[in-house]
Design a protein around this nucleic acid. Sequence first.
DNA 1: TCTGATTACTCAGTTTCTTGACTATGATGA
DNA 2: TCATCATAGTCAAGAAACTGAGTAATCAGA
Lengths: 197, 197
Amino acid sequence: MALRHAVLAALLAGDGSDGDGSGEYSGYQLAKAFDIGVANFWHALPQQLYAELARLEKEGLVAGRHVVQETRPNKRMFRVTQAGLAEFEAFAAATPKASFIRDDLMVKVQAADSVDTAPVIEQLEERAALAEAKIELFGKVLRKMRGELDEEEFLRRGEPIGPYLTCLRGLALERENRDWGLRVAAVLRERRTDEAR
Amino acid sequence: MALRHAVLAALLAGDGSDGDGSGEYSGYQLAKAFDIGVANFWHALPQQLYAELARLEKEGLVAGRHVVQETRPNKRMFRVTQAGLAEFEAFAAATPKASFIRDDLMVKVQAADSVDTAPVIEQLEERAALAEAKIELFGKVLRKMRGELDEEEFLRRGEPIGPYLTCLRGLALERENRDWGLRVAAVLRERRTDEAR
DNA sequence: TCTGATTACTCAGTTTCTTGACTATGATGA
DNA sequence: TCATCATAGTCAAGAAACTGAGTAATCAGA
């Protein structure tokens, strides 16, 4: 039960991205938010989110209300309750689990001495290109969050600060992704041609 | 079924860390290897590894042999079979799944606007200290892998190159961990004192 | 001599995640 | 007009991972 805290965090930080400032999300919107911002530190599929929201509601940690729409299917909007905030507060104070990563590409690189590296090199370069795109996206997102403030100012006074800080981390990670990907691709490529001589 | 590939990669890359150059590991040694090198891109508990090795053996992707020891409990040493290598080769050529991260601390930071940040700041600083220790460890591991070669030389000709490259990534990640952790701790601390005025 | 660490593994139960559907409606674009 | 995308979900089966415990021997240090 750890996804629940990511969901609560997303709901609590809910002002930043959609501009409605309500801290209220539908399951569908939550899934979107997970794709963009939360994906930097937590990965979850929409089905998991719906299931988790249902569980959280049953336990009274979030409250949902039906919203009838004319042009769109009806939906349910969720917000964090007092009990939910208390639960999150307890989680925040507890010692965190070690972060963990799982990365197919690194598994492949680990065995680079034993397998054909040609496809791996391609994948590394694709990954780098994807990272590049994300870097640009994050740049835009950060600028938008900052508004007219410069970074230093925003870090001192801007709000919400949480999503901004995690987005900074996402940016740094993607830069690493890109740099490492290109570097490793170059190294492996170089070694292939050397080998072929 | 994804852990299996991490296990195969660890066995295939098995020369680097233990110096025996055999590509052979016991479940116990594998668990150690996962703690040090593989943990950079895959996290798994010993129980999982034993279970996975059993499955892999049943499918003929690894072969185990009993080793009787006098001073220590007997053990089983595993190496990757031809079928195992073929399986891994297919995995390496297939498009990789998106990497995924899960990080409690970032979940907490995401909700920094809604919760008491005092414990989070402490955790960030602990995390930074831990990262610092890992940075030093990785530095040593890399130096040992390089031997007398300098980095450029090693990247061109050194072996095994796979573990070296993934370790470089681990190092970069830990540096990010440390820098981000200290930065965020400082920002949140600063905002607390401002708030208190 | 007792404690704790290290080597070496096993098992069962539970939770969590992934996969791959399926249901609807309205809007958008070719 | 037809296809596809976006909204807004739900369901169920199976794979994978995690938790927590237990077994058993040797060795090093207090």
